[in-house]
Design a binder for these strands. Structure first.
Length: 1070
RNA sequence: GGGCCAAUAGCUCAAUCAGGUUGAGCGCCACUCUGAUAAGGUGGAGGCUCUCGGUUCAAAUCCGAGUUGGCCCA
């Protein structure tokens, strides 16, 4: 890219991006940029590793775009940023994908296939997915260390997990325990609560009578899981709830039933009783200690037994007004709450169900059946035993395995835990050490979650994961005397077998058979692998390959910034806090930027089944990577979800097109004049700068300040908005318009050079500011503007600093006022029906304050040009323009307190009043109808507003909804104005014809005019010199057009025929 | 079922914290400009500010209840 070289006429994002990719390759742009900052202050960013199944969707694309914009911004601010991307590659999702691929149905198939082979298949699959993600991320210009990502399956990363876990064990936070967990019976493993997905399903809904011992009657419970009845251990009630004893009659038989008072009607209706009577009113407390008989005592002979079982206890999870009966069937073997309460009551924990969801021999009659399939038989048996009060079905949400969609079961098994509940206070304290954007996410959601978090079950009975580094004595499998290995080196030292710490892979197949023998005891490994959430929880040191590489840990850890979507509150934000606290006693990150999810155009989540997914590559295809990134980055990154919008993305492409036009406009002139920015910088042309140059430079300073502030507050959307406002409104629509004529000047002039230097500086800094957002187009523009002494890539530039010298807030306001006046003037012109091409004799600016007067006085000429006015007349604030009427605008903050409920009515009257002088007396007179005797209008309540008089068009102008004056356009015609107007009409049409003929700008022509109206023809001929000059016509007269064009036009109702031909052609034809 | 967040023009969002006549950009329509030209300018249409209550002289804004959507949890 040579300086001021030829560029595409049109912004073509695809060709441009391809060129930039090639260019980046050629000059090693990324590597140079990283190297350029290698001496800078360290900034430790940690990438939340995406899971390697599936490809990048709009959400991940948004996430990576955000990371990219902040990494680039930080680099430009001088930081040496850690930018190693990561990939989360273990876990059940990949296992189930591979199982599907291989046609497996359960664990047996895997065992037959061979653990080692299966692990290899999973590894291959994850690697393949990783490649896909890498190329997706690269495709929209994300600059991270793609050659060296951290992978959770690498030995050094797995070691980081072992190390963290062993540190937690050192702090006595690792234990093995008998716990109620969610089990997927197909995957035959525990799954985390946040891996449970809830779906609506139809389940049995049964009411069961438990006959009371030592007294008449039964208590009634309700459940949707008949299969848990065999494990019933106790019944829970609300101690403070109201219950009733009901004598109910059905088919001539009477029963005494106990249920919650609030539910007794519902329950009896379900049971289709003929009649009933409340015979007893009691509280939950009265029921405590009542004993009952197990309804399936015969079918399940080995049912739970012991002191205190089959009794009524208080339980705080009971709701006497919710669904059910107010008495809750409790089976500690099949429910978390039941488990905790059962443990508290020191009742036995009975779970006659295996990890595969099949009843064990403890389930008696039901042994060998899959639990859900035993529901019918259990209900039949209850019926036969006279215990079934009612049965039906219910539609409710029930947990399913996130991967294979199998209904989960609550069972009790032996699992390994990090007992984070032991350090709950430390966790809550540590939260305070992190800064969140937005802060409510930390103080509400995150805090709530941490407060309620149970111990972390980290063990999974699966294959594709990091093996638990736990060895237990051969004859036992609990946490007594366990050995936790922290590093590969330690492993090599302690195991009985030969292990090369450099080469060992650490996956299950390689460590399963390793044993440790110490003090005469042989230890074997616990066969479980880690919950995949544990993998990413150690990313803050895994990224650094710590502990195997300890060169950077002390300097960098903890992370300065992490940046993920809000689902990670319960995911990575949490797992890192838990692991960081358990292992290190600290939160492993300082700042969190939490963004939302990408929703579709209707605000629903994108989902494959709904078919509303927008693929990032389709978006890139339609609008280019830069436009897509800018769209994504224009969304608030703090908590809110983003609604996808093709329109908005298209708008971003339009803005880039505008930037492209702004950029390419001055190039030919600069090239022609040999403008050399390294010799002619802004400072050297200072004396020749015109006001508009100083203004655009002042706006540039304000834009830089604003952007920096927003980016530092993690509001890149506002930073981008500020930049686009500057480029589109200030540079394109105002500055370029204002300097065009200076650039067309064929003579060398100080003014022209000053304009070059100004626009050069503006463009250079604008693309530098844009670079983090739209790295491709910024690079190409920068490359065209930059010289030998500049960097190879815009991304090596320093973030542009505010230069105090050019800051000029007063000038900014001046021009803002002028632009407001101009805009109002254009409006008034249109109302008066006068095109801009036709001059108007005068424009009157009625200023409300001295600032407006100053602004107009300093820029009268500019205003005359812009509004095509022969004269600008200024009416100062202390005088009034004679022809005006007035009305009043009410200030509600004054009116409200004064008039109370009638304030609205008074406001309307004031708005509608018409008076000839701006006095309160006149105004009060005009609104006397709505005023009571003792009421008056005060100065503070109103501001007077001018009303347009007849024959003159007027439009108010102001800043930020604050009126500052009115512009009146006097559009009356004189002969001179008509002459110029018609001449301009002719010129415009000749120009258009020149253009149609593709004539060079410099080319001379011969011109012929035939105008149907003599008066108009005379008026036009008065301006012949002007026409000749503007259209470069050397000859005027009769033309036989051979080599040119002839066309008829209608101008303001007058027909005119115009013919022209290039002079070279005209000569040839003679 | 619970917690958090959101709901304002056809679309994307401001204005909500500190109550005072709802704004911008995009899109649409009309007009206009023409040496950036698949650009530019001006105007117009388009809002019971999700609903229902409450507080207040005054509510998009504060409070309560609900509806819809999103995330998380059960």
């Amino acid at each position: 890219m040579s300086r001021f070289g030829e560029v595409d006429d049109q912004y073509d994002p695809h060709a441009l991006e391809q060129r930039v990719f090639d260019y980046w390759d050629d000059v090693d742009a990324y590597e140079q940029t990283v190297e350029h900052r290698s001496d800078g202050e360290s900034f430790f960013f940690v990438d939340g590793p995406p899971y390697t199944s599936g490809s990048a969707h709009m959400g991940t694309t948004w996430n990576k775009s955000l990371k990219d914009v902040y990494i680039r911004f930080l680099r430009m601010q001088g930081y040496d940023v850690t930018d190693r991307p990561g990939y989360d590659m273990h876990g059940l999702p990949i296992e189930t994908k591979v199982e599907e691929k291989l046609g497996f149905e359960n664990k047996k198939d895997i065992e037959e296939f061979g653990e080692e082979n299966f692990i290899q298949e999973c590894k291959d699959y994850a690697d393949e997915q990783l490649e896909g993600l890498q190329s997706d991320f690269k495709s929209f210009g994300v600059w991270m260390d793609w050659d060296n990502p951290y992978r959770t399956v690498s030995p050094e990363y797995m070691e980081a997990a072992w190390w963290g876990f062993s540190k937690a064990a050192d702090r006595d936070l690792v234990e093995q325990g008998h716990r109620s967990i969610s089990q997927c019976p197909r995957c035959e493993t525990a799954i985390a609560n946040n891996e449970v997905e809830y779906e609506d399903v139809e389940d049995p809904s049964i009411y069961v009578k438990f006959d009371l011992e030592d007294r008449e009657g039964s208590i009634v419970i309700w459940t949707t899981t008949p299969w848990t009845i065999p494990a019933n251990t106790f019944v829970a009630v609300d101690e403070e709830g109201d219950y009733v004893g009901v004598r109910a009659e059905k088919d001539g038989e009477e029963e005494l039933l106990y249920v919650a008072e609030a539910k007794h009607e519902d329950v009896l209706k379900e049971g289709r009783y003929d009649d009933y009577e409340v015979v007893e009113e009691l509280t939950g407390e009265d029921l405590l200690g009542w004993s009952y008989e197990h309804p399936l005592a015969e079918e399940v002979p080995d049912h739970v037994d012991g002191e205190g079982v089959f009794e009524v206890y208080a339980g705080d999870y009971v709701d006497t007004h919710g669904s059910g009966t107010g008495l809750v069937h409790s089976a500690p073997g099949h429910g978390e709450e039941d488990f905790y309460r059962g443990t508290e009551l020191e009742l036995p924990i009975f779970c006659p169900v295996g990890g595969d969801g099949v009843y064990t021999d403890e389930a008696g009659k039901y042994e060998g059946q899959f639990v859900k399939e035993a529901d019918d038989e259990i209900m039949a048996d209850l019926e036969a035993n006279g215990a079934l009060l009612a049965s039906g079905t219910v539609n409710h949400s029930y947990g399913h395995c996130w991967r294979c969609d199998t209904g989960i079961l609550q069972i009790v098994t032996d699992q390994w835990f990090i007992t984070i509940t032991d350090v709950k206070d430390e966790l809550l304290d540590n939260i305070e050490d992190s800064e969140w954007y937005p802060q409510w996410a930390r103080d509400n959601r995150f805090r709530d979650f941490v407060e309620e978090a149970p111990d972390w079950n980290v063990s999974r009975q699966r294959y594709w994961g990091i093996p638990l580094p736990v060895w237990t004595p051969e004859d036992r499998d609990d946490d007594e005397d366990m050995i936790v290995v922290g590093t590969r080196e330690e492993l090599a030292e302690r195991v009985d077998q030969d292990v090369d710490p450099e080469a060992v892979d650490l996956h299950k197949d390689t460590v399963d058979d390793l044993t440790i023998t110490e003090d005469g005891t042989t230890y074997t490994r616990v066969p479980d692998v880690f919950d995949v959430w544990l993998d990413s929880s150690v990313a803050s040191w895994g990224t650094l390959d710590f502990p195997s590489d300890d060169s950077r840990f002390d300097e960098l850890w903890p992370a300065d910034l992490i940046l993920e979507a809000h689902d990670q509150t319960r995911g990575w934000f949490w797992s890192q806090l838990g692991m960081g606290t358990a292992a290190m006693g600290e939160i492993p990150y300082d700042k969190v930027l939490m963004h939302g999810h990408a929703l579709d155009e209707d605000g629903r989540k994108m989902s494959k089944s709904v078919g509303n997914v927008v693929e990032p590559d389709v978006a890139i295809e339609r609008h280019g990577s830069d436009a897509m990134r800018m769209f994504l980055l224009s969304a608030n990154p703090q908590g809110d979800d983003m609604r996808f919008s093709w329109d908005e993305m298209g708008t971003m492409e339009n803005h880039l097109r505008t930037l492209w036009n702004v950029f390419r406009f001055p190039l030919p002139y600069m090239r022609l004049d040999g403008f050399e920015p390294s010799e002619t910088d802004l400072e050297s042309v200072d004396d020749d700068l015109e006001l508009v140059d100083e203004w655009v430079l002042a706006r540039l300073q304000a834009t830089k300040a604003e952007m920096t502030e927003h980016l530092e507050a993690f509001r890149q959307d506002r930073a981008l908005e500020a930049l686009l406002e500057f480029v589109v409104e200030d540079v394109s629509r105002f500055y370029i318009q204002a300097v065009r004529e200076r650039m067309w000047d064929e003579e060398d002039s100080g003014s022209k050079t000053a304009a070059y230097a100004t626009i050069y500086r503006v463009l250079r800094e604008s693309v530098t500011l844009l670079a983090p957002f739209a790295p491709f187009v910024s690079e190409e523009i920068y490359g065209t503007l930059a010289g030998e002494a500049d960097h190879d890539t815009v991304h090596m530039e320093d973030w542009p600093a505010v230069e105090e010298y050019w800051v000029d807030e007063q000038l900014e306001e001046d021009v803002a006022l002028l632009r407001a006046i101009e805009e109002a003037g254009a409006n008034a012109r249109q109302q008066a029906g006068r095109k801009l091409r036709w001059p108007v004799p005068r424009v009157v600016v009625a200023a409300d304050d001295q600032r407006v007067v100053e602004a107009v006085e300093r820029h009268t000429t500019l205003l005359e040009e812009r509004l095509n006015a022969r004269e600008i007349e200024l009416v100062s604030p202390d005088s009034q323009w004679g022809e005006l009427d007035y009305s009043a605008e009410a200030d509600m903050s004054e009116l409200g307190p004064a008039f109370g409920g009638r304030a609205g009515e008074v406001m309307t009257a004031l708005n509608e009043a018409r008076i000839e002088e701006t006095t309160l007396e006149a105004l009060e007179e005009a609104v006397s109808d709505v005023l009571e005797d003792d009421e008056s209008i005060t100065e503070a309540m109103v501001s007077f507003v001018t009303e347009t008089p007849d024959g003159v068009a007027g439009t108010a102008f102001g800043l930020d909804n604050d009126d500052r004056g009115v512009v009146y356009v006097d559009a009356s015609l004189t002969e001179d104005i008509e002459s110029e107007g018609y001449a301009r009409e002719v010129i415009r049409r000749v120009q258009e014809m020149r253009k149609d003929l593709d004539l060079d700008v410099e080319e001379r022509i011969a011109l012929d005019l035939a105008i149907d109206d003599d008066r108009v023809a005379d008026l036009v001929s008065e301006r012949e010199a002007l026409i000749r000059e503007e259209v470069r016509a050397d000859e005027l007269g009769d033309l036989e057009v051979d080599n040119g064009a002839r066309k008829e036009w209608e101008v303001e109702g007058v027909m005119m025929e115009i013919a022209l031909e290039p002079l070279a052609a005209a000569d040839a034809s003679k």
